[in-house]
Amino acid sequence: MTIYSSESIYRQGIGNIIRMMISDFSKSRELVWRLFLRDFTSRHKQSLLGWLWIVLMPLMTMGTFLLLNMSGIIKIGDIDIPYPIFGLMSFSIWNIFSNGLAITTNSVTGAGGLVQKINFSKDSLVFASFGQVVIDFLIRAALTLGILLLYGRVPLTSFFLFPIVLLPLVFLTLGVGMMTSLLQAISKDIVSFVNLGTGFLLLLMPVMYSAEQVGVLGKLNAVNPLYYLVIVPRDIMLYGEVHHLAGFVLSGIFGLIIFIFGWMFFYLSQTKLAERI
C-alpha cells in the first residue's frame, strides 16, 4: 500500500521556485528579525571586551600590516590618505565577505536544536546571522567617519553610497554562505576551509595595501570578482573615483547569479537539514 505524497518541488520550474523563495522570505521577515535580535543581544555575553572587539579586530590587522611594511616583508604602497582611514575602511568592507561567510556558514549548524525541533524556513537563520555583519560594518564606518574628521578631512558624498555599492558584495557573500552553510551540515571542516580561504585571499588581494597589480598576482586579481567588489566600492567611498567599472558591473552580475543559485540550492535542500544535524 502506498499513499500519494506531496508533489516534488523540483517540478515547479525555476520561476515558480524563485517566487516561492521570495514569498517564504517575506512571510518569515518577523522570524528573521527575532533571530537577529537574539544573536545581537547574546553576541558579547560572557566576553570581557564585548563590543570593543569590533574595533580591536581591524586595529590588530592594520597593526600587523604596518609591522610587516616596516620590516620590509610587504609593501603597503602609496596611499593618498592616512593609513588608519584606508586600513579601517578596507577591513570593514573585506569583513563583510570574510566574517559574513564565516558567520553564515555556521548559522545553520549553530542552531542545531532549533532546526531539528521546529519546521521553519531555514534560510531565515542565514539572513539573520548576516545582520551581525551589517552591524559591524555600520559601527566601523561610523568610526572611519570619526577618524576622517579627526584628520580634518570632510567625508565625500560618495562615502554614503555604501548601501548601493556594497550590495553586490553582500549578494555574493550570502550566495556562497548559503551553499557553505549546507555543506557545513555535512562536514564540520567547511568553516575551517572558509577561514583559511578568506585569510589567504586577504593577502592575495590589495585590500590592506595598495601595491601595483603586476605579474601573476595582477592576472589573478583581474579575473577575481571579489577584487572588483571590494576595491571598487572602497575607491568610491574614500576617493570618489570609479576604476574598473566594467569589472565591477560584471562582478556584480556574477554576485547576483551566485546569490540566486546559492539561495535556490539552499531552499531546495533545506528539508534534508534536520536529519543531517
Partner: peptide
C-alpha cells in the same frame, strides 16, 4: 485536484 494523502493505485489515472 490534489491527491496527496490518498491511496495510490495507478499514478497516471487516479
Amino acid at each position: 485536484v490534489p491527491r496527496t494523502g490518498m491511496l495510490k493505485t495507478t499514478d497516471s489515472l487516479d
